[in-house]
């Protein structure tokens, strides 16, 4: 997608002179905090996403602090209680507190999202750099990537989960594999155009070896698009983790991830809708926040 959601807002506004300063320049000037804040103010999308994400991260990471109960504690007397002062989000079929489970569940989602984002970037960069620079492996690697890309991501992840035991680590693996080809393609395309540039030719002329050229000349130019790509991968990984868990092929059911909570609640849609409502709202908000951060970063870093 080359469109940008809020590009209209930033393009239209008359920018003061020098307002287009790159983040790097802004950081070099004194008072970097103030410049950073000013930069954020011009990126309402990024700001909104970051604030929402921060709140969600705080709610999950600091779950012990926010008046939660033990997310696994069974209270058969208090089965399927609707939301009230004692249990804000109600209770599930075993009397477990949905509020506590939702907050703790956020940890899994955020951890999986971050892990999948970072891992796919690292592997994709490694494969893409090599593939873009060495013609001999390129054809083979790209054919494999085409094949992987032709398989819809959820199906590929499901097929992988069918072959692995349910664990958080294996969910991360199953979600990384479908993302790798997208990163590889991005990296490879940039390498192909960058390697023809004079700076690379110059580096070669003064005797720089290939690994050095790849890491010192080509990789830095890729950082901005990769950060944006990584953010989007993170958003879709959070969503897909919930899909896998919901379909019974994700994190082990014992772990209160958002997908698992909702999978257990589906039998009670008619009687206890809150078991699905609240974790789902958190999930939707988290994915939205990460997507907004991605859109904001794309505008800020002027990717495409």
């Amino acid at each position: 997608m080359s469109s940008s959601i809020h590009a209209s807002g930033t393009e239209g506004a008359a920018a003061p002179p020098g307002a287009d300063a790159l983040p790097a320049e802004a950081r070099a000037r004194p008072g970097r905090w103030r410049s950073g804040l000013r930069l954020l103010r011009r990126q309402p999308t990024l700001l909104a996403g970051l604030v929402a994400l921060l709140l969600i991260a705080l709610s999950g990471l600091g779950a012990d602090l926010w008046w939660t109960a033990d997310p696994q504690a069974l209270r058969p007397v208090a089965r399927l209680r609707p939301p009230a002062a004692e249990q804000w989000f109600g209770t599930d079929q075993y009397g477990r507190d949905v509020y506590s489970r939702t907050l703790y569940g956020g940890r899994i989602s955020l951890a999986v999202g971050a892990a999948v984002g970072v891992t796919s970037l690292c592997l994709g960069v490694a494969v893409g750099l090599v593939s873009g620079y060495y013609r001999r492996v390129d054809t083979l690697v790209m054919r494999v990537m085409d094949g992987l890309m032709a398989i819809p991501a959820i199906l590929l992840a499901l097929a992988l989960m069918a072959l692995m035991r349910a664990s958080v680590r294996n969910v991360i693996i199953a979600l990384v594999v479908p993302e790798i080809p997208r990163v590889v393609r991005l990296v490879r395309a940039s390498v192909l155009s960058l390697r023809e540039q004079t700076m690379v030719e110059g580096a070669r002329a003064i005797g720089a070896r290939t690994p050095r050229i790849l890491l010192r000349y080509i990789l830095p130019a890729l950082v901005a698009p990769l950060i944006v790509q990584g953010t989007y991968i993170c958003a879709s990984a959070i969503l897909f983790e919930a899909y896998l868990s919901f379909l019974g092929a994700g994190t082990p059911p014992i772990i209160p991830s958002w997908g698992n909570i909702m999978a257990e609640g589906r039998a009670y849609v008619q009687r206890a809708f809150w078991i699905i409502l609240f974790p789902g709202a958190f999930l939707a908000l988290t994915v939205l926040a990460v997507n907004l951060v991605g859109d904001g970063l794309r505008d800020l870093l002027k990717v495409r």
């Binding site: 959601i5 899909y243 909702m262 939707a284 997507n291 859109d295």
Partner: peptide
């Protein structure tokens, strides 16, 4: 559009 993109389908 961005909300639709972030919406969990089953939810």
């Amino acid at each position: 559009s961005v909300s639709g993109f972030s919406m969990p389908v089953f939810w």
